[in-house]
Design a protein around this nucleic acid. Structure first.
Length: 264
DNA sequence: ATGTCGCGACCATCGCGA
């Protein structure tokens, strides 16, 4: 059972990349972020042709999230409960696992696209913090369900200095601000496992490289796309990885897919 | 030191968001 997250930075610009990657990696469930289009403009037929159910929560120009699933999926929320928002940043559903799956009958999946929050001290930063507070509150309720649950997406938070090649460059940035990191720790402390950190001590595990200033050739990356596993999901965690080779393709997204494999 | 994309308004560059 392979679950992944991928910020595509425009689904219409990245469809070919996504299709190639879906065919090679064959994930069961994928959370997408930054669709940058309305639901009716989403290229759903192409992805359905690969055997995926497609559930979108789109928005014109900015934001937009989706869940792709090779198994049945029932969407429970488009938009973060308890957080009235114009922006399409949250989608949550329940995936019906194949018969006999050892993780039980269902996997709950929440796809998130966090506000960037820059500049620090602006209303945008307060909006980011409010989004995290609302997600943390909602996640408490989800954990009480005692289901396998994964919150997957672009959190726009660099959790630790080792999650950036040059952490000093991010001082003062909303992605590395102490409040952002504390908010992220508070969410994790409810009982979530960071799939990448739980399975690897490797250096340079990044999921984003800026388009500017040669960030990719210099490997000036950061890790901001995360998979947070509830205890029942973490019990089944086998391995996790980052498909960094997509960043070397022609016209790539500035993010790459991050995935984890659950036993069963 | 700088270096880039994607979108939409609106036609050709520009402002915004990242």
């Amino acid at each position: 059972m392979l679950i992944a997250t991928f910020n595509v930075n425009s689904i219409r610009q990245r469809l070919a990349h996504l299709m190639r990657w879906l065919k090679s990696r064959e994930p069961d469930v994928v959370c997408l972020q930054e669709l940058k289009c309305l639901d009716e403009a989403f290229p759903r037929e192409e992805i359905e042709a690969l055997g995926y159910r497609v559930e979108t929560f789109g928005q014109k120009t900015f934001n937009g999230v989706a869940i792709l699933s090779r198994h049945g999926v029932e969407i429970e929320h488009r938009g973060l409960p308890g957080f009235p928002d114009e922006q399409a940043r949250y989608i949550e559903g329940v995936v019906s696992l194949p018969q006999g799956h050892r993780s039980g009958a269902v996997l709950r999946i929440a796809g998130v696209y966090f506000p960037n929050g820059n500049p620090v001290g602006s209303p945008k930063f307060e909006y980011k913090r409010a989004f995290m507070a609302a997600l943390t509150r909602h996640a408490e309720g989800l954990l009480a369900l005692e289901e396998p649950l994964i919150i997957a997406g672009d959190f726009n938070v660099i959790p630790q200095p080792q999650d950036a090649r040059f952490p000093e460059n991010w001082r003062g940035d909303a992605l590395f601000q102490s409040e952002s990191r504390a908010d992220f720790r508070r969410l994790c402390a409810l009982g979530f496992t960071d799939a990448i950190r739980a399975t690897s001590d490797d250096a340079r595990l990044y999921s984003f490289w800026d388009y500017q200033a040669g960030a990719w050739p210099r490997d000036n990356g950061i890790r901001i796309d995360h998979l947070l596993l509830s205890p029942l999901a973490a019990d089944r965690l086998m391995e996790a990885g980052i498909d960094r080779e997509l960043r070397a393709e022609e016209k790539p997204s500035d993010h790459v897919p991050v995935w984890c494999r659950l036993r069963g």
